[in-house]
C-alpha cells in the first residue's frame, strides 16, 4: 500500500498466520500487557522466557524472520552506547578492566537486562500489532475507546504517508536530475530546508482539496468506521493463554528472586 509504511508491508506475511486470525483489539491489549509484565521482571534468567515467547509470536504471525530481526537490530543500534557505558558507570565488583576502567558485574547485568527486555517487547509488538494493516490498527484503537479525534488523526496520517512519500521521492528525483548530491555543507542544508518547506506547502494545499472533496461527499467531521470486530472463541483462548503465560512469568520471577 504505502512506501514509507511500506517497509512494514514488505515485512507483512504472504500467508496470514494464526496470529492474524485473532481479534486486533486482543492483540493490542496482549502486546501492552506483555510489555508491562516484561518491564517489571527482575531476574535475568526469567527474562529469557519473554524473548522466547516473542520468538514464538514471530513464527505464529508468519513474519519473515530476516527483515523483522534486522529491524530489531536497528533498534539495538540506538541504545548500544547506553548499554556499553553501563558496566563502567555502575559501582560493583569488577568483572574486567578496559584501558584501566573497571567494568562491574552489576552494570553488565543491568545492560543485559535492558537489552533482553527491549528486544523481547519490540519483537512481540512487531509480531502482534505490526502484523496488522495500519488502518486496522486505527479501527481497533477506536474500538478500544481512544478519543475519536486521535483515531481520525491516525487514519489520515496513515493514509497520507504514502502520498507524501511519493511527493518526496518525486522532488528528490528532480533534485538528483539537476545534479544535487547531499554533502555536509550549507547548500545541502538549505536545499533540504526548501524541500521540506515545499512538502509542507503542498501538504497543506492538498489537505484543503481533500477537505473540499470530502465535504462534497457529505463529510461532517466524522469518519464512519465500517468494520465488524467481534470477540470470538479463539480470542477468548488467546486471552486466557496470554494471561496464563504472563502470570507464570510473574510467579517465576518472584520464585527465582526468593532463591537469590
Amino acid at each position: 500500500m504505502s512506501h514509507a509504511l511500506g517497509h512494514a508491508q514488505s515485512v507483512a506475511p504472504t500467508t496470514p498466520g494464526p496470529i492474524q486470525a485473532v481479534d486486533p483489539r486482543a492483540r493490542i491489549l496482549a502486546a501492552v500487557a506483555f510489555a508491562l509484565v516484561t518491564v517489571s521482571l527482575k531476574s535475568l534468567l526469567v527474562l529469557l522466557a519473554p524473548l522466547a515467547l516473542a520468538g514464538a509470536a514471530l513464527l505464529a504471525a508468519r513474519l519473515p524472520p530476516g527483515p523483522t530481526l534486522k529491524r530489531m537490530a536497528l533498534m539495538d543500534g540506538f541504545i548500544v552506547f547506553i548499554l556499553v557505558l553501563l558496566p563502567f558507570t555502575m559501582p560493583g565488583d569488577p568483572a574486567f578492566t578496559l584501558f584501566g576502567w573497571p567494568a562491574s558485574w552489576a552494570g553488565l547485568e543491568r545492560a543485559a537486562g535492558i537489552a533482553l527486555k527491549a528486544n523481547a517487547i519490540v519483537l512481540m509488538l512487531l509480531s502482534l500489532v505490526g502484523s496488522m494493516e495500519p488502518t486496522t490498527l486505527g479501527h481497533a484503537l477506536a474500538r478500544l475507546r481512544l478519543p475519536e479525534s486521535l483515531v481520525h488523526l491516525l487514519l489520515f496520517t496513515v493514509r497520507y504517508i504514502a502520498v507524501m512519500d511519493d511527493e518526496y521521492r518525486r522532488l528528490r528525483r528532480a533534485m538528483k536530475a539537476r545534479g544535487f548530491r547531499p554533502r555536509t555543507n550549507g547548500h545541502t542544508f538549505r536545499t533540504f530546508g526548501y524541500l521540506i518547506g515545499m512538502l509542507l506547502v503542498r501538504a497543506l494545499e492538498r489537505s484543503e482539496r481533500i477537505l473540499q472533496a470530502m465535504k462534497c461527499r457529505g463529510f461532517t467531521g466524522r469518519l464512519p468506521l465500517l468494520d465488524d470486530l467481534r470477540y470470538a472463541r479463539r480470542d477468548a483462548l488467546f486471552g486466557v493463554g496470554t494471561a496464563t503465560a504472563l502470570t507464570l512469568l510473574l510467579i517465576l520471577d518472584v520464585w527465582h528472586a526468593g532463591f537469590v
Partner: peptide, 25 residues
C-alpha cells in the same frame, strides 16, 4: 483541533513522518 482541521493536521503529520526518513550526511 476542530473536526474540520483534522485532515490538514493528518496530512501535515504524514509529512513530518516522511521528513523523519530524510538522512543528512
Amino acid at each position: 483541533l476542530s473536526l474540520e482541521k483534522i485532515p490538514a493536521a493528518g496530512v501535515l503529520s504524514a509529512t513530518f513522518f516522511v521528513a523523519a526518513l530524510v538522512h543528512v550526511p
